[in-house]
Amino acid sequence: MKNVIEKYIRKEMFPHIWCPGCGNGIVLGALIRAIDSLGWEKDEVAMVSGIGCSSRITGYVDFNTMNTTHGRALPFATGIKMSNPKLKVIAVMGDGDCAAIGGNHFIHAARRNIDITAVIINNMIYGMTGGQYSPMTPTGKFGSTAPYGNIDQNFDLSALAASAGASYVARSSIYNPNQGTRFIKKALSKKGFSVVEIISDCPISYGRMNKLRTPVKMMEWIKSISVPKKTWEKLSVEEKKDKIPMGEFLDICIPEYTDKYKEVCAIAQEGGGNE
C-alpha cells in the first residue's frame, strides 16, 4: 500500500503542515487509492483546492495542481474542465471553504452538472485560522468565535448537493476509509457533478473546544454519530438528532454540461438558434 501512495506524492513537499492526528492524510490516502484503482495517468488528472488546511492537499500530489483562493476551487475547476474536457478534474475543499464562502459556487456547479468530483473534508470547523465555527459546526458546539455555543443551524451538504442537481452524492468518514475510497472511486467514474463528503476530525481546534482533545476521542465521537443510511431512515426525529447518515444518497445519469455545450457548438455552427 505504501508504494501506491509514493507513486502519487511530491516527496520534496514533505513533511506536510498538518497536525498529528489530522484526518486530511486519511482522505488524501483514500483519494490516491481511488485514483490508482482507476488506472488514470497522472498527466490527465487536474486537482484544484481553495484555502484552508485541506487545500494543501494539491501541493502534495503529483498531478496538474492548483491551490486557489478561498471558496473558489469549483469555478477554477470549471474553467479547466470546460476548456479541456479530457482532463479528470477534482476539487478538494474544506467545510468552511465549500459551504460558507464557496457555497454559491457549490450549488451552481451542481446545477450545471459539470463533470467534476468534489471531495469535501468536513471537520466542522475553520482549523487553519484557529477554530472559528463553520456552517458545518453542529448547533450547540463550541468554536473560538462561538464561546457560548453555536446558535447557527448547520448545513446538510449532501442533501444540498442532491437537491441542487448533482449526479452522485455520498458521505463517509475518516473512521471508515475503505468506504470513503469506494465512494470516491464511484464519484470519479461518474459522468457529471459528483460529491463525496468525508466527515473528518480536528483534535487541535474542534476537539480542544469540545472536550475531544485527542485524535482517538475524536475518532470515537465520529464513530458514535455515524449511522448507515438505511438505519438512519428508520430512526425517529429525536433519535436522528446529533447523528449523521452515512452512505450513497444519489446516483443518477443526467446530461453533463460539457456534453451539452458540444451540442450548443453544433447548433451554432449549423446556423441555428434564435439569430
Partner: peptide, 29 residues
C-alpha cells in the same frame, strides 16, 4: 453568439468572482 461557432467556450457564471476564476482555470489549459 460567436464563440460556439468557432469551438470556443462561453460561460455565464454564477457571479463575477466565479467568472474571473473560470477565466484563470481556462488560461492554464
Amino acid at each position: 453568439r460567436r464563440l460556439p461557432k468557432i469551438d470556443g467556450k462561453f460561460m455565464q457564471m454564477e457571479d463575477e468572482i466565479a467568472s474571473m476564476a473560470a477565466v484563470i482555470g481556462a488560461s492554464l489549459t
